[in-house]
């Protein structure tokens, strides 16, 4: 067995062993079943919630919120980031504001976002977009500023227009950093959507986790947590795939 296969086996066996240990610990009362439940009990609840369509409903609505908010945040982040990175006047105007507001924990903005955007879907999109936009801007700016000078020289030597410098040089040149930013902000999106849904929503994974805990339906809460993890893993895999397709020249 070569190292690669061993790694693959390990990546399956380790989580399985952890689940087994959890189950055993729960059954032998090493851990408190009342609060930690057991994988088998959670799985049973998972099946029930899957069959009733409840789980799918919450997952899809969260996914939709993430997708829309993430897209808004990424697109505007790339546009702003390119402008800040390439145009000194824009940088002078925006960089201080961006730097000053970036460290504000985005979760803390939730009440404000709800006041501005209301209790509906718009506030969910907004909070995710806000969380994403900063990371994408910062990575895009850094990506643009670290483009090898030679590519900019080529662009200038061939008298590429400003638009073409954006679309053909700066954007693809910064793409590896942009995608890295997107990957980080995907994690942030998940945190924000779960928080936002637990604050003001009638559906979604965050709502599921929050309300089931409120009425102490422990297994359901764990199913919600599990679903959040699955959602995170799937979205990360999606971005990994996107990275391979969009920047084939950067083989990691």
């Amino acid at each position: 067995m070569n190292a690669k296969m061993l790694n693959r086996v390990l990546s399956v066996v380790t989580p399985a062993l952890l689940l087994l240990a959890w189950e055993v610990a729960s059954r032998t009362q090493i851990i408190d079943f009342r609060f930690f439940s057991a994988p088998s009990a959670i799985f049973k609840e998972f099946v029930v919630m899957l069959e009733s369509g409840e789980l799918l409903k919450h997952t899809l609505i969260s996914l939709q919120r993430i997708f829309i908010g993430f897209t808004i945040g990424t697109v505007s982040g790339v546009v702003i980031g390119l402008a800040v990175g390439l145009i000194p006047a824009v940088s002078a105007a925006l960089k201080p504001i961006i730097d000053a507001t970036f460290p504000i924990p985005k979760v803390g903005l939730l009440p404000l976002v709800i006041i501005i955007f209301g209790l509906g879907e718009a506030s969910k999109y907004a909070i995710i977009a806000i969380g994403v936009v900063y990371l994408v801007i910062i990575n895009t700016v850094s990506g643009v500023r670290h483009i090898e000078r030679i590519y900019l020289d080529v662009g200038r030597n061939y008298h590429a227009s400003r638009l073409m410098m954006f679309t053909d040089v700066a954007l693809p040149g910064a793409l590896p950093m942009i995608i890295a930013g997107m990957k980080i902000s995907m994690g942030v999106s998940l945190i924000l959507i779960v928080s936002a849904e637990s604050l003001a929503a009638k559906s979604g994974i965050g709502y599921l986790i929050w309300t089931t805990w409120q009425v102490f339906e422990v297994e359901k809460m764990y199913v919600g947590l599990f679903m959040a993890a699955v959602l995170g893993a799937c979205l990360t895999a999606l971005l990994d795939w996107l990275e391979r397709v969009m920047i084939p020249w950067k083989r990691v």
Partner: peptide, 24 residues
């Protein structure tokens, strides 16, 4: 609203606290 949020975070910390102090 913030209170509710901190309580959500409290859910997991409360559970973790339960590990720290076992019934025995």
């Amino acid at each position: 609203m913030v209170r509710r949020l901190t309580r959500l975070v409290g859910v997991l910390t409360a559970i973790l606290a339960a590990i720290a102090v076992t019934p025995s």
